[in-house]
Design a protein around this nucleic acid. Structure first.
Length: 491
RNA sequence: CGGGGUGUGGCGCAGUUGGUAGCGCGCUUGCUUUGGGAGCAAGAAGCCCCCAGUUCGAGUCUGGGCACCCCGACCA
């Protein structure tokens, strides 16, 4: 176990909190609820951004940028949207400071009060639809397929690094379409993009599904999501894609003239993922030794640690290390030769394990003599000797293997922790125990969902797309149900 | 916003009946080390969260603030 890291079994939540700090991903800032994302953590986010951004572009989207501030009045235009966000908005009321006449530092200049307060965006639907009104007149102006990489602020009661911070980074796609079907297709396409990203890059199996009315995004007609299971048996929503219908077009009066000359409201979608994904990545794969990162998102895929006593040994070991390094780089592997003399090999081993570097290569005098290198993989902690000449191919295939293994491991875990139940007793037994996903029949009412939440803390994560559509009886009310839904305790 | 907890070198903590602050890690320097978080030696580093009060004297007692953390409610 890594030095001073609480084990997952002892206290999962504490393990997570400590790991984020110890692995140097982020730290709490001087501002309540807001984190500083440190370089190592930010480079994971950059990897995520790069992969997602390429996928957005491939599906026809372009990036743009809208203001951080939104006039307060914009929020009143879509009723359920206001209701959803009103309680967690930061509000700007003044635009100037002045010296305190009593000499006690600096105070807000009351004469510089804004005519209309500005809301720090909790999400950008309103400012964007206000803008789109000017962009759209004809069906020829559609579709608009825009994404924005931005920060948003939601004044959360309680925060946790990456999982829930008052300010967070995300991307939000906002599209406008001529027909409902086209918008619905877009909603589905982007959900698929998210699922593909989670599975291929994060090595995180996800369940695609639809939110119930209770859990739906404020202002959406339909909310689709991907849900993943963390190692403690709790679910984490990893991305959402909303079909907004004509709600925002109506609220902001965005109409277009169709091919046949009719004036119609535009159809909309919005979709987003946030820095919360970094939290998901940590919780899904990491262990009591520290982070375990999937090779496709690891800032550093391999590290070479030299071992030597004398200068003469260092020269030979260093030459061998540099030649392995260039062989790896030739294969497009990101690799660092850590020749710092300020830390010993054992220290480096532990450090890179804590930071989740997928592959570690150790080269010492024995290796130089035998023409070998020692290659260790982070996911299984297995170490083996390989001929130095094969280092590059070995690492390349090992990275693929690790990526796959992490996915397989997470999938196996999810399968073992997904239970189908037909009674409320069984349901409670699982939810109160190791938790996980529970597939059960539900009568489709918000009241039942609410009651179950109050009694067990479990919520309906989604109505899965690939669930069995066989009818049954609601585990709570005994009323008829047309399909099973997925329950879990959630983050 | 309710309940609980904590504020002491950079970090983690100890500090007894009130007497002027200590331990571990880290840091600096030197020597020995280097295949799983090295050893020894010598150093540097403190507004004991803030403000009042009690007292000859407060890290310690009293009152009032503030901040952060954890558990709920709220939420991506």
């Amino acid at each position: 176990m890594a030095k001073g890291l609480t084990s997952r079994a002892t206290d999962y939540s504490q393990w997570y909190n400590e790991l984020v700090i110890k692995a140097d991903l982020a730290e709490n800032s001087a501002v309540r609820g807001c984190m500083v994302i440190k370089p190592y953590g930010y480079s994971i986010w950059e990897k995520m951004q790069a992969a997602l951004d390429a996928m957005f572009k491939r599906t026809g989207h372009s990036n743009a940028y809208f203001p951080l501030f939104i006039p307060k009045s914009f929020f009143t235009k879509e009723a359920s949207h206001v209701e959803g966000f009103a309680k967690e908005c930061a509000v700007v009321t003044h635009y100037r400071l002045k010296n305190d006449p009593n000499g006690k530092g600096i105070i807000v200049d009351e004469t510089a009060k804004l005519e209309e307060e500005l809301i720090v965006r909790p999400t950008s639907e309103t400012i964007i639809w206000n803008t789109y009104k000017g962009w759209i007149q004809s069906y020829r102006d559609l579709p608009i397929l825009v994404n924005q990489w931005a920060n948003v602020v939601r004044w959360e009661m309680r925060t946790r690094l990456f999982l829930r911070t008052a300010e967070f980074l995300w991307q939000e796609g906002h599209t406008a379409h001529a027909t409902a079907q086209e918008a619905i297709d877009e909603t589905n396409t982007m959900l698929d993009v998210y699922a593909e990203f989670a599975e291929n890059f994060m090595a995180l199996p996800v369940i695609k599904g639809r939110k119930t009315e209770n859990e739906r995004f404020a202002g959406a007609v339909d909310t689709l999501c991907i849900e993943a299971l963390m190692q403690d048996g709790k679910a984490l929503q990893c991305g959402t894609s909303h079909f907004l219908g004509q709600n925002f077009a109506k609220a902001f009066d965005v109409k277009f003239t169709s091919k046949d000359g009719n004036l119609e409201h535009v159809w909309a979608t919005s979709w987003g993922v946030s820095t919360r994904l970094v939290g998901a990545l940590i919780m899904a794969h990491s262990d009591d030794n520290g982070l375990v990162l999937p090779p496709k998102l690891a800032p550093l895929q391999a590290v070479i640690v030299p071992i030597y006593k004398t200068d003469e040994e260092y020269k030979k070991v260093g030459d061998a290390a540099r030649s392995v390094k260039s062989a790896l780089e030739a294969k497009g592997i990101s690799v660092k030769f850590d020749d710092r003399e300020t830390h010993k090999p054992g220290w480096k081993f532990a450090e890179y394990e804590l930071k989740g570097v997928p592959v570690r290569i150790a080269i010492g005098p024995n290796d130089v003599a035998n023409g070998t290198v020692e290659i260790a993989r982070r996911d299984t902690l297995e170490k083996k000797l390989y001929p130095a000449g094969q280092a590059a191919e070995t690492v390349a295939s090992l990275l693929d293997e690790i990526q796959q293994n992490l996915y397989d491991r997470a999938l196996k875990f999810r399968q073992e922790n997904t239970h189908q139940v037909d009674s409320y007793d069984e349901f409670r037994k699982i939810i109160d125990g190791k938790a996980g996903f529970v597939s059960a029949h539900w009568d489709g009412t918000a009241e039942t969902e609410q009651k179950i939440k109050e009694e067990t803390k479990a919520t309906i994560r989604c109505i899965p797309f690939d669930g069995e559509a066989t009818p049954g009886l609601c585990i709570y009310s005994g009323k008829p149900s047309k399909e099973r839904v997925l329950f879990a305790k959630a983050y």
